[in-house]
């Protein structure tokens, strides 16, 4: 862990990262307010979130100065999390074609899935 000598520099670093997170939050809100064409708003939104998360993980959670063992644990988790994400989504991208969009019980026709 960081020894006391450069504790001061660390504290300054924490405040800077805090500031960066504030700015990024404002950015992500503004981006979603002024609409961006369909696929890109997702990409930008997720990119900002990933950037913020990586800031928190690397600096606040000291991952930059962490031992390799923690990287292995997180690597294994990431590997399995990817399958948890990708495969159900790939499956449902096909299954949505099979969904019966019934008329809404209130009577008007449900919007046809584009």
């Amino acid at each position: 862990m960081s020894d006391h000598a450069d504790a001061k520099s660390h504290e300054k670093l924490y405040w800077m990262v805090g500031g960066a997170l504030f700015v990024l939050t404002i950015a992500t809100v503004l981006v979603s307010k002024y609409h961006i064409p369909h696929p890109w708003n997702y990409v930008v939104g997720i990119a900002i979130a990933v950037l913020k998360a990586s800031l928190v993980v690397s600096i606040f959670m000291h991952l930059k100065w962490e031992s390799r063992l923690i990287y292995y644990v997180l690597g294994i988790t990431a590997f399995f999390a990817v399958f948890l994400f990708v495969l159900p989504i790939v499956d449902f991208s096909w299954t949505t074609g099979q969904i019966i969009h019934r008329a809404d019980p209130a009577g008007h026709e449900a919007v046809e899935h584009h």
Binding site: L87, V90, D91, S93, W94, T95, Q98
Partner: peptide, 9 residues
């Protein structure tokens, strides 16, 4: 009822 392409995977 899973997608048949995924079944091959």
């Amino acid at each position: 009822g899973m997608s048949t392409t995924l079944s091959n995977f």
